[in-house]
């Protein structure tokens, strides 16, 4: 008995989506959250590629085009989220520094 590969890929995609979702909600660190969102995106893309395979062995190009567009969107949003994370970290550091300096002056 053989398992159809499309089913394996599809279920793996869904598993990655759910695993990423769990990580996004449960991880406290920002970088882990960003990675989790990326894993979710990969899960969706894997699922989309699998859809293109269905229908009697004929390859449907539309989901592939969707995955390509999705990857572009995902790369851009990852870039934005990383840039924003750096900025949040910088601001927090400056804030900490100012607070510590203000505290030091008082002592």
């Amino acid at each position: 008995m053989s398992v159809p590969p499309a089913l394996v890929y599809g279920l793996t995609g869904l598993f990655l989506f759910v695993a990423g979702l769990a990580g996004l909600i449960s991880c406290a660190q920002l970088l882990r959250k960003i990675l989790a969102a990326n894993i979710m995106a990969s899960g969706v893309f894997l699922f989309l590629v699998t859809i293109g395979h269905g229908r009697g062995g004929v390859i449907d190009p539309v989901p592939h085009a969707m995955v390509l567009t999705g990857i572009v969107v995902s790369v851009s949003s990852t870039a934005v989220v990383l840039a924003l994370a750096c900025r949040v970290q910088e601001t927090a550091n400056i804030h900490d520094l100012l607070k510590r300096r203000a505290g030091g002056d008082r002592e």
Binding site: F17, L21, L24, L30, K33, A37, M40, A41, V44, F47, L48, I51, P63, M66, G70, S77, V80, V81, L84, A85, R87, V88, T91
Partner: peptide, 23 residues
């Protein structure tokens, strides 16, 4: 900035959920 980060993460989650639904 912190609010924007939270907004972005919530929004990413929403978009990915929407995309899987579209699939």
């Amino acid at each position: 900035q912190v609010a924007a980060m939270r907004y972005l993460l919530a929004s990413l989650l929403g978009s990915l959920s929407f995309l899987l639904g579209v699939a």
